[in-house]
């Protein structure tokens, strides 16, 4: 566990006033300090420049265009502040959104979640903490849908390996995956090695290869 310099400073971007207040309340309840809460992407960029927060939680669909303003702002912010943790909330599953975001800054300290996840407060907060700790969180539904796409290089993976990859994408450690799938940690390690090999990932001893594996997945979803 990394030492946590308390408290985490958060900027919130969400155009719905009610939900923005609800989210602020939620984060405050768990000890985060919400230093700014804004309603559109421009204001978000301004707030980050001014307040230098540790974490941004942003809605993807915001005024004025109601398409992917929040996402583009998030990608820009990640470029400008590589260490900034970002969690993007989406109305619906769209893996290209996730890939846009995960492509930024090595895919570390980012999360892509369906907006509905916030109502499972404890899980949501656990995801936020995971991202702050340097992890990557991709909504389970995105992963599930990706797994259903029958395309290379997914085809090269066995059923079990896909399952393991799904857990990786959800941000679980090997130990956690072992527990979830009722297998030994060594077995999970073997699966991970096999996945990385099958996805042609360089055998450098960078722990971030796990994230790269997820990225490989997401990119397949974007092809064509």
């Amino acid at each position: 566990m990394p030492p946590e310099p308390a408290p985490v400073r958060v900027v919130l971007a969400e155009d719905g006033v009610l939900l923005r207040e609800g989210l602020a309340g939620l984060l405050g309840r768990f000890g985060f300090e919400v230093v700014g809460a804004v309603g559109d992407a421009e204001a978000l960029k301004g707030a980050v420049a001014e307040l230098a927060p540790d974490l941004v939680v942003t809605d993807i669909r915001m005024p004025p265009g109601f398409t992917d303003e929040g996402l583009r702002a998030a990608v820009e912010l990640r470029r400008a502040h590589p260490g900034l943790a970002v969690i993007a909330l989406s109305q619906y599953v769209e893996q290209s959104y996730a890939s846009d975001l995960l492509d930024s800054s090595d895919g570390k300290r980012v999360g892509y979640l369906l907006k509905d996840r916030v109502v499972d407060v404890e899980e949501f907060v656990a995801n936020v903490r995971h991202v702050l700790d340097g992890g990557t969180v991709v909504d389970p539904q995105v992963v599930r849908q990706l797994l259903r796409r029958r395309r290379d290089p997914l085809l090269r993976l066995s059923e079990r390996e896909r399952e393991v990859l799904a857990r990786i994408a959800e941000g679980h450690s090997n130990a956690a995956i072992a527990k979830l799938l009722y297998v030994s940690e060594a077995a999970v390690g073997k699966h991970v090695g096999s996945i990385l090999a099958k996805l042609d990932l360089p055998p450098a001893d960078d722990t971030n290869r796990r994230v790269l594996a997820v990225l490989a997945y997401l990119r397949t979803g974007r092809e064509q």
């Binding site: 009610l18 609800g22 939620l26 309840r29 907006k115 109502v119 407060v121 404890e122």
Partner: peptide, 24 residues
Amino acid sequence: ERDLHDGAQQRLVTLTLQLGLARL
């Protein structure tokens, strides 16, 4: 769609969020 998204959906998510907090 836009009306439902801005109105009912947002309220419902907020309400569910508050219920989730109350649960804690």
